[in-house]
Every structure is written in C-alpha cells, then in structure tokens.
Simulated assay, not measured.
Amino acid sequence: MVQNDRFGTFLAHLILILGVGIVVFPVYVAVIASTHAPGTFLQGVMPLLPGSHAIENYSEVIFQGRSTAGAPPIGLMLWNSFVMAMMIAVGKIAISLLSAFAIVYFRFRFRIFFFWIIFITLMLPVEVRIVPTFEVVANLNLLNTYAGLTIPLIASATATFLFRQFFMTVPEEMLEAARVDGAGPMKFFRDILLPLSVTNIAAMFVIMFIYGWNQYLWPLLITSDEGYYTVVMGIQRMVTGADSEPLWHLVMATVVLAALPPILVILFMQRLFVKGLTETEK
C-alpha cells in the first residue's frame, strides 16, 4: 500500500512538472531570444542558451522603439497599457459593486428585470457593438484619449453578477444591526460589505486588469496617434509593419517586457486573495 501511494505521488509530481515545463518553455525561449543578435534568427537556428546582447536589445526597445514599423518606444506603450488596464479594472469593480449593492439591498420596482437586462449584455461583447460604439466615441470627440480607450469597456455584467451573488450570502442580521446602530446605506456598504468583499475584489481586479491589458481591437480602432498606442498594438506593428524581415530579437524583448506587469499584478493580488481566504475575522 505504501509503495502504491509513493508511485501515485511520483506520478502526480511528474505530470505537474511536465505541465509546468510545457507552459514555461515558450516563455524561456522568448527570454533567450531577446538576448541574441538579429542575425541569429536569420540563420534558422533557435538558440537555447542566453546571448550577449540583452542590454543592447532591451535598451533599444525601451528608449528608441522601431520607427520603421511605426512602433514608439515601449516605455510609452507600457504606460498607456497600464493606464488603460487600471482604469478598466477599477471602473468595472466600482460600477459593479454599486450596481450589485443597489439590486440586492434596495427594493424598487423591476429591480430583477434590470438585473437580467444587465446580465443579457454578456451576449453583446465589444466586437458585436463595435461600429455604433465607435460612432458614439467619435461624436463625443474621445478618439485618441484615455477616456475613449476605457469608458466603452468599463461596464461588466460578469462582475455585477458575482458581487450580487456574494451580497446575497451576507446574513440579513448584519443589515438589521447596522440599521439599529443608525448606519445609512452607504455607511453599511463602506464599513461592512466592502471589507467582506476583499477576496472577490482581488479576484475580479486580476481578471479585469489582464482583460484591459490584452485589449487589441478597440485600441487599434480608435487610436491613430502614436502617443496612445498600447503595447499589444506595438508588438503587432513590430511583427507586420515593415518591408524587411521582423527583428525577432526586439520583438521577443518587447514580449518579455509586456508580460511583466500582468505577472506582477497576479503575484501581488494572489497574496491578497490568499490572505482574505485565511482570515477568520471578517
């Protein structure tokens, strides 16, 4: 019996190691590719050991960009992507918290009907309504602005649904106790519901930040000014926007730098998420 358990443990760890290897290997190749000279890849060779041009390659993409492909320095594009992702994540969470709070704790006519109207919008992603949305943004003179990049993507039926389901699990006695103490609706929301929602907010923030960071079609449609290009747009332009062969060492350096902010957000919010799950007092 002990031998079978040891074999099962070994097999489970082997499968996990293989899975991690499959996921990590492309990332490793990208990191290695970003440290080599441009001529390395024109020879049809994929090196697996680091090169000696890492500082040169990363300095070029950070400070110079690739003017022949219409891609500005990545520092500006990273900032634009960060602003867009943060505004989308914070905006989605704020609006979803308030809408879920209103639907659960305020008794008004047709509140369930309005909730289902919000939920039905899941069937209408940006790609479906992109033409009328673009027309509205253009008429409001929001092209080539951070507001135009973020406001059409802020509303989130998914987050509203998740926060509504969580608020419905909060004991009714807590609301009654808050009323007895003289707390108004917003004080109850701020002092009780928000602290209880930390884990949900952390999870939604990670999801929405990555959603905003990876946006490509909408920024491509409404931005013509290089000052508002996002890093995903920059990568695409570096690959397809020149007459010559793509400079894969610079493309891979850009990919590595573009992956760092989402990874850092995941690591940071994961700690907060675990902390919220393990706390006994809420």
Score class of each variant (00 low, 15 high):
M1V: 01
M1C: 03
N4R: 13
N4T: 12
F7C: 02
T9I: 10
L14V: 06
I15Y: 13
L16A: 15
I17Y: 06
L18N: 09
F25T: 14
F25W: 11
P26S: 03
V29I: 14
A30Y: 00
I32A: 01
H36Y: 10
A37Y: 02
Q43H: 09
L48A: 11
L49Q: 11
P50N: 01
G51D: 03
S52H: 11
A54K: 01
A54I: 02
I55Y: 09
N57D: 05
S59K: 12
E60C: 04
Q64K: 13
T68M: 09
A69S: 15
G75L: 10
S81F: 01
M87D: 01
S96Q: 05
L97Q: 07
L98S: 11
A102S: 14
V104I: 14
F108R: 06
F108Q: 10
R109W: 15
F114T: 04
I118Q: 09
F119L: 15
I120R: 03
T121G: 11
L124A: 14
V131Y: 10
V131C: 04
P132M: 10
P132W: 09
T133E: 15
V136P: 06
N139F: 09
N141S: 14
T145S: 15
A147L: 15
A147R: 07
A147V: 13
G148K: 04
G148V: 06
P152E: 08
L153N: 12
S156G: 06
T160C: 08
F161G: 08
L162C: 05
L162R: 02
F163T: 08
M168I: 01
T169G: 04
T169W: 09
T169Q: 15
M174H: 10
M174A: 07
A177Y: 07
P185Y: 15
P185F: 14
F189T: 06
L193H: 08
L194G: 04
P195M: 06
V198K: 13
I201V: 15
A203V: 14
V206I: 15
F209I: 03
Y211G: 14
W213M: 08
N214C: 02
P219F: 04
L221H: 03
T223C: 11
S224V: 07
S224H: 03
Y229P: 00
T230S: 13
V232M: 12
Q236T: 06
Q236N: 12
V239H: 00
V239T: 10
G241V: 05
G241S: 04
E245D: 10
P246C: 03
L247I: 14
L247H: 08
W248G: 10
H249C: 01
A253W: 05
A253N: 03
T254L: 01
T254M: 06
A258R: 02
A258G: 03
A259K: 00
A259H: 01
L260R: 00
V265T: 03
M269H: 01
R271V: 12
K275F: 08
G276K: 02
L277Y: 02
K282Y: 13
